[in-house]
Amino acid sequence: MAQDNQGMLWEVFIQTKPGQPHRHCGSVHGHDRELALQNARDVYTRRNEGTNLWVVPSNLIVASSPEDIGPFFEPANDKVYRHPTFYTIPEGITHM
């Protein structure tokens, strides 16, 4: 017998309401795209959770590493001018 094969691992992203972003909700196995999508539907939308689904092969996800925290994310810490609270506007001004 050939080696056991439980199917590829896929990451499942679910949209819970129209217009909302898709959020990661878990993983499923599936031997191809259609089975992966159906499996995601059967596993992750049994309680009325979904309006749309994405499945993505887990091995295609490119992720940053824990070592990257410093160089990737800390440089953003001091860019306070990107936030609206950095700016002073006269009192009484609204809609801005």
Binding site: G7, V28, H29, G30, N39, D42, V43, R46
Partner: peptide, 11 residues
């Protein structure tokens, strides 16, 4: 035959 199908058939 595998876990995902178990759940699918129950559905």
């Amino acid at each position: 035959p595998y876990l995902e199908e178990d759940i699918a058939m129950a559905n």
